[in-house]
């Protein structure tokens, strides 16, 4: 039976429950301050992006890699797999169906990980705020470090958002992964409230 330490994984069929991990995410304490400061510097200067182009925001990410805006000068690079990425960029509105995939991707990333919500849709639903199928506030489902408003934000605004995120990381305030682990039950309850056909493990390693 499940206790406080393990997750029930009730969404999975009975015979598959043994195949998946049922451990809860754990909080990883930061190291001593001066070491952590150095590590945070390296994290801020080597942000690898997992871009999740759910909406129009995906179009606005392309120019960032071109000669005109060139985010590689900040040490940022696109990374095609969540295992290696440290920054999840949500590019626009999220329907219930895409939110499920975003949660999977986010949970597969390794601590420390950061989330940037791109565009008004992630802030309050944007122009889809009264739609029956798009979420209104991303921060009820995932810990968001930086919101970049706009519909859609220009690449300059996105770069400003990156600067904001780097400042947060260097100050040691970007502890979204630990926050997710601490308030795991709250996040899960919110996620499960709208994702009614939860047919995956409660925590996707």
């Amino acid at each position: 039976m499940h206790n406080k330490e393990t997750l029930p994984n009730l969404g999975l069929p009975e015979h598959e429950r043994d195949l998946f991990c049922d451990a809860r995410p754990r909080v990883s304490k930061p190291l001593a301050s001066y070491i952590e400061k150095f590590l945070n510097w390296s994290r801020a200067n080597s942000l690898w992006i997992l871009a999740y182009g759910t909406g129009c925001g995906a179009i606005e990410l392309r120019p960032l890699f071109t000669a005109r805006f060139d985010i590689s000068r900040y040490g940022m690079a696109p990374r095609p797999t969540p295992r290696q990425a440290s920054l999840l960029m949500i590019g626009g509105y999220l329907s219930v169906k895409t939110l499920k995939r975003v949660i999977r991707s986010y949970e597969q990333m390794q601590n420390p990980k950061f989330v940037i919500g791109l565009g008004s849709c992630t802030v309050n639903g944007g122009m889809y705020w009264d739609s029956y199928n798009t979420i209104n506030r991303l921060d009820h489902y995932l810990p968001v470090d930086v919101y970049i408003t706009g519909c859609m934000p220009r690449p300059e605004a996105i770069i400003a958002g990156f600067e904001q995120l780097k400042k947060r990381i260097k100050d040691g305030r970007a502890e979204g992964a630990n926050q997710y682990a601490e308030q795991f039950d709250w996040y899960k309850a919110n996620q499960k409230k709208i994702i009614t056909d939860w047919n995956m493990p409660d925590y996707n390693w």
Binding site: D130, I135, N136
Partner: peptide, 18 residues
């Protein structure tokens, strides 16, 4: 006759101050 706005407000945690 399906009120999407009411459904959205009930379900998706609308952000106040919009």
């Amino acid at each position: 006759d399906f009120d999407t706005r009411a459904y959205s407000e009930k379900t998706y945690f609308p952000r106040p101050g919009r």
